[in-house]
Amino acid sequence: MNWDDARVFLALGRAQTLRGAARALHVDQATVGRRIAVMERNLGSMLFLRTSTGYLLTAAGEAAFEAAEGMEAAATELMRRTQGLDKALSGEVRVTTTDFLAVDFVIPAMARVHAEHPEVRVVLNSSSQLLNLSRREADIAIRTQKPENPDLIVRRLARWPMGLFASRAYLDSHGMPEPGRAFMGHDLVVYEPHLSEGRELLLVGEPAGGGRIVATVNSSMMMRRAIAAGLGLGEIPQYIGEQDGLVRLWPERERSRPYEVWMVTHADLRHTARIRAVIDQVVQVFSEAGPG
C-alpha cells in the first residue's frame, strides 16, 4: 500500500461512508470505491464490511488502519519539518476557526496579509468542527477551547467577560427583566450545548427556569444575530454586544466563565514565513479590538 492508497483507506475508515471519504479527499464517491476495491484485490484481503449503515473495518482492515496511521504520521512529520524551514512568503496557509471569529477577525487579517504578501493564499475553514493540527488538517486554529497537546504552540488572543444583552426593540416590547424572577415573562436565546449538558440553565448567574426558550443556537454568530433580531435575551461577549449596538442588562453581572480565544499552531511550523505572516496579522487584529 503506497501513501496515496493509504490516504484513501484512512479517509474511508474514519468517515465510514463513501460520501464522507470523498468529501474529505475532494474526489467523487466512485473514485473512492474503485481505489478501495483495487487495494483489497492487491492485498488479497477484505478491508471493509459493506453494511447498510456504512463501511466497517474488518480484522484485517483494523491491522492495516493502524499501519496506515503510522504512514500518515511519518508523512506529516516530514512535511512539517521541511515546511518549518520554508522562508518563502508564498503558498498556502490553512486556517480553521468559527464563523464569528472568521468574519470579525480572520478575514480582516487575511486582507492585510494579501496586501503585503499577495502570493500567500489563505484557505479558511469556518466551522465548529475541530480539525487536527497534528495531521495537518490545518496550519493555524483559532478556537475558544485551549488544547493540551504538548506539540502545539498555544497563545491566548482574547479574554472577554460574558454579559446579558438584548436589542432595544425587544426591551421596548417586553421591558427589563427583574433580578430574582428567573426571567419570568421573557424570551431567551440559548446556546444549545449548554442545554445538552443537563445542568441548570443560568444566564449571568441567574436561574432561567421562568423564561421561555424561543431559540437554541450552536454558534456565537447565530447567537448575536438572534439577539440583534429581537428574538430574546442572551449571553454574548461584552465586546461583541457593545460593537453590535445591543443593550447590556445588569452590567454588574457576568457569566462565571469568560469567553476566551486561543490561537494554536504546530511547533514545527511556527517559523514558516507564510504561516508567521498570517499569525502576526491575526494577533494584530485581535490586539486592536481591545484588552484580551
Results as ranks from 00 to 15, higher is better:
S45K: 15
E66D: 06
A68W: 03
A59R: 10
N42L: 13
E72Y: 08
A67H: 07
S52L: 15
M46F: 08
A63S: 14
G61N: 02
L56Y: 12
S52V: 15
A64K: 01
G44I: 07
L43R: 14
L43Y: 14
L47S: 04
E66Y: 00
R50F: 12
R50Q: 09
L56T: 10
E62A: 02
S52T: 14
A59C: 10
T51S: 09
M71K: 13
G44P: 11
G61E: 06
L49P: 07
G61Y: 06
E62G: 01
F48V: 01
G70Y: 06
L56K: 08
A59I: 12
L49C: 10
Y55N: 02
S45F: 13
T53Q: 14
T58E: 11
S45V: 12
S45G: 13
N42C: 09
R50G: 10
M71W: 15
G70I: 01
L43W: 14
T53M: 08
A59L: 12
G54P: 12
F48P: 05
L47C: 01
T58V: 02
A63T: 05
G61A: 05
G61K: 06
L56I: 15
L43G: 02
G70W: 09
E62S: 02
F48C: 02
A63K: 09
F48Q: 07
N42R: 13
A68L: 03
L43F: 15
N42E: 13
G61S: 07
A60K: 02
T51L: 11
L47W: 02
A67F: 03
L56P: 11
L43C: 12
L56C: 14
A68V: 02
G54F: 05
M71Y: 15
G44E: 06
A59Y: 11
M46A: 09
